Computed example of a mutant assay.
Amino acid sequence: MDRINHVLEVDGVLLNYGTNRVLQNIYLKCQTGKVTGLLGRNGCGKSSLMRIMFGEPIAVDKSVRIDGMSLLGDYRHPNDMRYLPQQKFIPNKLSLDRVLADFELEKSELIAYFPEFGNFPNLTIDQLSGGWQRILEVYLILKSKSKFVLLDEPFTHIMPLHVETIKDLILLEKPNKGILISDHLYQHIMDISDQVYMINNGRSFPIKSVEELHDQGYIRAY
């Protein structure tokens, strides 16, 4: 992976669900070497924005750019961007070794972070619990050789101990790529992010502190 600085930007987004305007005044910038957090209440459009950035044709209008060059159509090259959706994406019948090989990752390194995977020789994905499947998915996307990774709810259904390991991995990977992360566990987002955006009433704006989250009504106490 090169160490050239890259910039991912999105703006000009218009997204409607029926007669409801969900996103309309959005600007977000993610840079390599930084973790960018994305917060907002359920239903505000966080996941939709990530899907739009990844190329899903759900928006009326949008502009997504890397280094000023527009990304057109609904295809993103894996070297440019990878996306962790909320729903599982690994086919059940693939083996753990096959999945790691497809992402060009070493099993020994996975085991170094999550020793429990050493107890799963020759298993297929559907033989892992839901929690371990999610950990594997987060690991694959986070460690992939891509300029940018978009992580949607990476801490969901994961034990606190493993959440801390994933946070450590995010900080270790930060020098190699730009990381955009959204999760309802806002404390973790604030802990590891270099910059944070919040979506409210269809627009995005920067957040500097937990106090601002309180002022915006996102949290009741802190």
Rank of each mutant, 00 (worst) to 15 (best):
D183F: 02
G73L: 02
L136K: 06
F120P: 15
G55Q: 06
V35L: 02
N20G: 05
Q127G: 12
S144R: 09
V149H: 15
F205H: 03
N5G: 11
N122K: 15
D2Y: 01
N92I: 02
D11H: 07
G217V: 04
V210N: 06
V149A: 13
L94I: 06
Q127M: 14
I90H: 01
G73D: 04
K167S: 06
G68C: 09
G12D: 12
G73R: 00
Q216D: 04
L123P: 06
E104L: 13
K177D: 00
T32Q: 05
G55W: 00
L15D: 04
Q216L: 10
L8W: 03
Y139S: 08
G202M: 02
Y218E: 05
I58H: 01
S146H: 14
L84W: 07
A221H: 10
N122Q: 15
V210I: 14
M81T: 06
M69L: 09
I166L: 01
F54T: 02
Y113F: 15
Y27M: 07
H188S: 13
E173V: 07
E153I: 08
G40V: 06
Q86T: 04
V60W: 09
L172P: 00
Q187P: 01
P115C: 13
L8Q: 12
I199E: 01
L94Y: 08
E104D: 15
N25A: 06
E9I: 02
Q195Y: 03
V7I: 14
L172M: 05
S182Q: 05
C44R: 10
S146V: 11
E106P: 13
I207P: 07
V10E: 05
L123T: 12
V64L: 02
G12Q: 14
G178D: 03
N176I: 02
H6W: 06
I192K: 04
T19I: 03
P160T: 03
E106D: 12
A101Q: 09
F54D: 09
K34V: 03
L123V: 15
D126R: 14
I4P: 06
Q87R: 11
P206R: 10
E212Q: 12
H188V: 00
G43C: 06
I135H: 07
F114D: 14
L169H: 06
D168P: 00
G33F: 04
D80I: 00
C30M: 14
N20C: 03
R65K: 11
Q24I: 00
G40E: 08
L38C: 11
V99S: 05
L39Y: 04
S209G: 12
D168A: 07
T19Q: 07
S47W: 05
F117L: 11
L169I: 01
N25E: 10
A101T: 05
S204M: 11
L123A: 12
S70Y: 10
L151S: 05
K46P: 11
S144F: 05
N16G: 08
I170H: 01
V99I: 11
G131M: 09
H77Y: 13
S209V: 04
T156I: 12
S95R: 14
K93Q: 12
L171W: 08
L185N: 14
L185H: 07
R134M: 01
D67I: 04
